[in-house]
């Protein structure tokens, strides 16, 4: 065996850990949450507020254990939130207040 290269956890091509992992080939229906997150990213992209590359960066920044625990679109909403906070388009105080109002 050669030494394991310092790849990032999202960079999954060919890694031995999943060599025997079966693939769930059954159809899965998207939830309303999934569709809304997907569409929100599109709106922010079309308006030039965030790129798909920023979405990916934010997803890749999720720690490995959480990355695998979170559903696909939960990774997305986390990345979208991260990006909006980083850019100051939404502040932590605003987000905190909005979360508490619920």
């Amino acid at each position: 065996m050669t030494e394991q290269p310092p790849r990032a956890h999202h960079d999954m091509g060919g890694i031995a850990k999943y060599a025997c992992e079966p693939v769930d080939i059954e159809p899965h229906t998207l939830t309303d949450f999934d569709k809304e997150v997907d569409a929100l990213r599109q709106v922010l992209g079309l308006k030039g507020i965030m790129t798909v590359d920023e979405l990916r960066r934010g997803i890749e920044a999720i720690p490995e254990d959480e990355y695998h625990r979170l559903s696909y679109y939960r990774r997305w909403i986390r990345s979208i939130t991260d990006t909006l906070l980083r850019k100051g388009l939404v502040t932590e105080a605003e987000l905190q207040a909005a979360l508490e109002q619920r």
Binding site: F33, E36, V37, L40, L70, S71, Y73, R74, I77, R78, I80, T81, L84, V90, E94, L95, A98, L99, Q101, R102
Partner: peptide, 11 residues
């Protein structure tokens, strides 16, 4: 994520 989405929706 559901809570984050709801908060962002309004903001």
């Amino acid at each position: 994520g559901e809570a984050l989405l709801a908060a962002l929706r309004g903001l």
